[in-house]
Each structure stands twice: as structure tokens, then as C-alpha cells.
Design a protein around this nucleic acid. Structure first.
Length: 547
RNA sequence: GAACCAGUAGCUCAGCUGGAUAGAGCAUCGGCCUUCUAAGCCGAGGGUCACAGGUUCAAAUCCUGUCUGGUUCGCCA
């Protein structure tokens, strides 16, 4: 990784903080160092002169000349140009390593990544699916970086909400049976409840049950099973699969919640007030939160703390949660609870994604599972497809308050930028398929020296940046940079494609360009696969407008 | 009243965590297919980076304040 090396080499000589930047234009080099500005202040010198001195000095370094062909001062910056030799050597590396290019060393570090975890009280909505492609891609990137990653879904199958779910189904069932029974507003109003009730009726499972509470319980279990498998199915169709589906109920059955509470209590972090047990967050008392309710039931927070502890007990070094921003108030509470259990602050990361506002028919919808006002994810998936949805979410920062116009998304799905990336891959594939020597992995790479066009170098430069990107995302979790990168790589390739022929009379040049294409296809396919997006070998004909 | 996140082109969003002339897609207008796929390429128009101060060699980016929007402040989950 050139960036790290550069930083190391300069740091060895200058004991000061500085940044390695990317110049605004590739013409200005691959990396830029602002060292002169920083030294100028310390030594009270002119930054421009200093940068020239630095450039002259760096140019003489043998170590740097292994990577850089040119080092020059521009307006106070020192700009570094990766040498052509080094670019070609990296091209070779890509061809040799294939999809392993950019992979990090095994780190022997276990990460538990929890995301989506939508309540099993209804079908998956467009709303709660935002974290799915993001978390899935993050897991892939972390794995590529050498971490051991487990993807996990926390099923909130305990507490009052699922009891209400059971009651909703039970009352619908009784109505189907011809009983007059009211259906209060606080129950789940959605159509899917009636569907489940119909299945309960068809099943005949509850025919003998007279006691209402017992009926509710059986309906609850039935509905939970049904809805969970519905959610699993929806996610699967999007291509997202979890390693572990963790039941909240388990924490109470095994007594883990109780144990966790005892540890907190022992550490004097718990006190009683109004018949409930509270977690002491700070001295003001204002932020304190209930762990055990006055009726003896555990709170959601208690479950979450016990759940996080459970992850560490299972041997994970780090837990990463992706939550919707509506839970931001819970972050401090969970963090505090986990800290009181004596785990390091860094052991838990909570990423928040902002909520999506959804527009249907020009109107912004507020979604509520209780009220049954849902934009069901499956319906969208069927219309626009998984690749489009994934890329749409993956391109944006988690902090973006997205506006998702469903009608527009359907209408414009054939203009989604994902096709731009996939099309680049299809074009590459077409070239490789056409060339006679495509699979002849001859080790004669000497022709690479024939690559000297501007577009060829731009392509190589983009390819070389890939490992740095993977490493950076594994640290800052900015998954959308990968989507942005894939788009820009596709763009650089399309430009190359328009300007230069690969298959041609000059067979030596053709061979060299084929290698460049193979390397590009490899990286493009790797990025797509990290994002969980398909890499089609062909894309025929344009979809008709407004179909 | 408090907390978190945001406000960048007509629309949807990037802007690599303080750097060089603020970018892309869509939309609008104009050009490019006898040659590896035109789901592509080239060009044009479109910006007081919400506003006001501050920090410094340098601010869309950091700090403070104001305005606007989303979310949350329950012994719901």
C-alpha cells in the first residue's frame, strides 16, 4: 500500500503531524503532502521555498524512487507521482492474485456485526432495509481485511409488543370464527395479521383452546415464526444472509439477563426507585434508565446489555451495531451499561443510519407497523430488483437523510448508476471473450511496457488505489466510498474504451491491453461482489423507457 | 426545554475528516454508432456550499450563535 509506505517513510524523518492528500486532478500526481505548510510555521519560513527543498530532497531518496517517478513542489504542496514501473508491477500483482488482491492478513480478531434487527411484528419495510446492503457489504469488506466476521440479527421476540402481536392475531381469528369481538387501536392493524389469522384457522391448531390468554400465546408463537421466516425470505431475496438469528427470549430463559443485572448491581450501578430498578448513567439522575420494571419484567435496555455481554462471552473482540437513528437515545445507555461490565470502550461501536423519508404518489409517508401503513420491501424488490436497491443504498453515507421517491425509483430504475458499473464489466467481458488468448494465462507480461497512453495510466492508477480503500473502510466503516469507487473505476474504463481499441493488428499491444482489461475486470468484479451486486457477463439491449 | 443528525446545481446525492479552479447521476439543450455492446462517449447551461461571526498560511469541511428540516427525549420495544 503506497499511501502507508509514503507516510511511514516521511514520518521516519520528520517528527511532526502531516497529511497525505489526493490532488484535485490526476495530472497533479497521486499523492500530495502538506508537510511544507506545517514546517513553515514552526521554522518561520516560506512554505513555497520549503516545499521545493523538500521535493528536491525526496527526489534523491532511493527508497521513494522505488514507488515514485516524479516528486515535485506545487504551490507549497509536495506532489508524488507513482512511477510507471511500479504501476506495471501492481498490474502484475493483480493478475497473479486475482480476487485476493487487496486482501489483508488474517488478524485473528472476531467481530460481531449486528444489523437490520427489525421487529418481527410485521413484514420488512423499505424503511428498515436500509442497513441490510450496508451491513452486508461492511461484513464482506471486514472479512477481506482479515477480520473474522459474524453477521447477526437480533429478534426482539420478548416483551409487550409481541404479546400485542399475538393478541392481534387471536382477535382476528375469533372474528373469522364469527365471534363478535372488538379490535382496539393499539393492536396491529395491517392486512398481514388477517392473513396469519386465516392460516391459524386453516391449521386447526387452536380449535380446542377456550382460554383467551392461551390462544394469544399460541397465536404469538405462530405469528412470530411466520413473520420471522417472511423476513428471512425477503432478506435472502436481496442476497443478505445472516450467520446467527439471536432470540431475545433466550437471554431471559438462560438467566443471562439476571446474571448481567447482578454484575451491574454488585458494581453499585443499580438502585431502586418507585419499585423499579434503575441503571445509574450519571450523577444528574436525569438520564438514568430502567432495567427492571416495577412489574418485575426486564426492560429492552436490560436485554440489550445482556445481549452485548453475551457476544463478548462468545469470544468476540468487538461488537458493531447498525441502528436506525430513532434509537440514538439508547446509545449512551447501552455504552454505559457495557462499560460498567468492564469492557473497553472500543469493544462496542454503534453506527446510526438516518431514517428514510418515503414518497409515494408525491406524498411523504409516515410509516407505522402498528397502524399498518407500510411500504413493503418485497413489492419494491420485485419491481426494481436487488442490484438497484443495493447500489442505491450503498452510494450514500449512513448520515444522509434520504428521500426515497418510490414512484421515481420504479420509473428510473433502468437509469440507476449500478448499470453503469455493470455495463463496464460486461464490456470488459465481451472483449476478453472475443480475444483468442483470453484464458491462456501466459506469464509473458513484458508487453506491459507498451501501455503508455494517458487513459491506460489512469486506469492503472485507479486499480492501485483499491487496497488502500478496503483498508480505510475497514477502519472508518464508510462503505459508500466503495460504491463511489466502483462508479469512478467504471468511468475511467469507459473513457479508455472509447479512446483505444484493445483487439487490433498490433498483437503485442493487444496482449498488453488484454492484461489491463483482465486486471480491471478482476477489480470491478471484486468490488461488485463485496457489495453483493451481480457482475453480469453480458447486458443486451436497452430497457425501454417508462415500461 | 434538551439530545443526535442534516441543510452543497431544478431534483437525488458525493466531496477521501482542514488544503489547490466545489463534483457526479437524473432532468434540459447540442454533437458522436460500416470498427471490441450507444445501459457508452464529448460538449453547454445551472452554485452567495442555509445565514452571521470566529479559529489560520488555508474553511463546504473545525468552533460559537441563529434559522430550517428529520429523529428522540415513557416502568414501548
Amino acid at each position: 500500500m503506497v499511501k502507508n509506505l509514503l507516510k511511514k517513510i516521511i514520518s521516519n524523518e520528520y517528527n511532526t503531524d502531516f497529511d497525505i492528500l489526493t490532488p484535485p486532478d490526476p495530472k497533479m500526481g497521486d499523492y500530495s503532502v502538506n508537510l511544507a505548510f506545517i514546517l513553515a510555521k514552526k521554522e518561520k519560513k516560506n512554505p513555497k521555498e520549503l516545499s521545493e527543498e523538500l521535493a528536491a530532497k525526496f527526489s534523491k531518496s532511493n527508497e521513494l524512487s522505488r514507488y515514485f517517478g516524479k516528486i515535485e513542489a506545487v504551490g507549497g504542496f509536495v506532489n508524488f507521482y507513482i512511477s510507471n514501473d511500479f504501476l506495471r508491477s501492481q498490474l502484475l500483482k493483480i493478475l497473479e492474485q486475482g480476487e485476493n488482491f487487496g486482501s489483508g492478513e488474517k488478524k485473528n480478531y472476531k467481530i460481531n456485526l449486528e444489523f437490520v434487527s427489525a421487529n418481527p411484528t410485521g413484514p420488512l419495510t423499505v424503511h428498515n432495509v436500509r442497513a441490510a446492503p450496508y451491513g452486508d457489504a461492511l461484513a464482506s469488506i471486514l472479512k477481506k481485511s482479515g477480520y473474522d466476521v459474524t453477521k447477526e440479527y437480533y429478534i426482539n421476540d420478548a416483551g409487550n409488543q409481541v404479546r400485542l402481536l399475538g393478541e392481534s392475531v387471536a382477535r382476528r381469528y375469533l372474528r373469522l370464527k364469527g365471534k363478535t369481538i372488538d379490535f382496539p387501536d393499539n393492536l396491529y392493524q395491517g392486512e398481514y395479521i388477517i392473513d396469519i389469522a386465516k392460516e391459524v384457522e386453516k391449521d386447526g391448531l387452536v380449535d380446542q383452546i377456550e382460554n383467551f390468554d392461551e390462544l394469544v400465546l399460541v397465536c404469538k408463537d405462530y405469528a412470530l415464526k411466520k413473520l420471522t421466516s417472511l423476513i428471512i425470505g425477503s432478506l435472502k431475496r436481496l442476497g443478505v444472509e445472516f450467520d446467527v438469528w439471536f432470540s431475545e427470549e433466550k437471554l431471559y430463559e438462560t438467566g443471562e439477563a439476571e446474571t448481567t443485572l447482578r454484575i451491574l448491581d454488585k458494581g453499585k450501578h443499580v438502585y431502586e426507585k418507585d419499585g423499579a430498578k434503575w441503571l445509574k448513567i450519571d450523577n444528574s439522575g436525569e438520564r438514568d434508565a430502567v432495567l427492571v420494571k416495577s412489574d418485575g419484567a426486564y426492560s429492552y435496555l436490560m436485554g440489550d446489555i445482556a445481549y452485548t455481554r453475551n457476544k463478548f462471552m462468545r469470544g468476540f473482540n468487538k461488537a458493531v451495531n447498525i441502528w436506525g437513528a430513532d434509537h440514538h437515545g439508547d446509545v449512551l445507555r447501552l455504552m454505559t451499561g457495557v462499560k460498567f461490565l468492564n469492557y473497553e470502550d472500543e469493544a462496542l461501536d454503534v453506527l446510526l443510519h438516518q431514517l428514510i423519508s418515503i414518497k409515494v404518489g408525491g406524498e411523504t409517508k409516515r410509516m407505522s407497523k402498528r397502524k399498518g401503513e407500510l411500504v413493503i420491501f418485497d413489492e419494491l424488490l420485485e419491481e426494481v430488483g436487488g442490484d438497484v436497491i443495493r447500489f442505491f443504498f450503498l452510494m450514500k453515507d449512513l448520515n444522509t437523510h434520504m428521500e426515497f421517491d418510490i414512484d421515481l425509483a420504479k420509473k428510473q430504475s433502468n437509469k440507476n448508476p449500478v448499470y453503469y458499473v455493470q455495463y463496464a464489466f460486461a464490456r470488459l467481458n465481451s472483449i476478453l471473450a472475443k480475444s483468442k488468448e483470453q484464458r491462456a494465462k501466459s506469464k509473458n507480461f513484458e508487453n506491459l511496457e507498451l501501455l503508455k497512453e494517458k487513459e491506460e495510466f489512469l486506469l492503472m492508477r485507479s486499480l492501485v488505489k483499491f487496497p488502500e480503500l478496503v483498508e480505510e473502510i475497514s477502519k472508518n466503516y464508510q462503505v459508500h466510498h466503495l460504491a463511489q469507487y466502483s462508479f469512478s473505476l467504471a468511468s475511467v474504463f469507459h473513457n479508455f474504451y472509447e479512446k483505444h481499441k484493445v483487439i487490433q493488428d498490433d498483437k503485442n499491444l493487444e496482449r498488453a491491453r488484454l492484461e489491463l482489461c483482465r486486471a480491471t475486470a478482476t477489480i470491478l468484479k471484486t468490488t461488485l461482489s463485496l457489495m453483493g451486486i451481480s457482475a453480469p457477463e453480458r447486458m443486451d439491449g436497452k430497457e425501454s423507457e417508462g415500461a
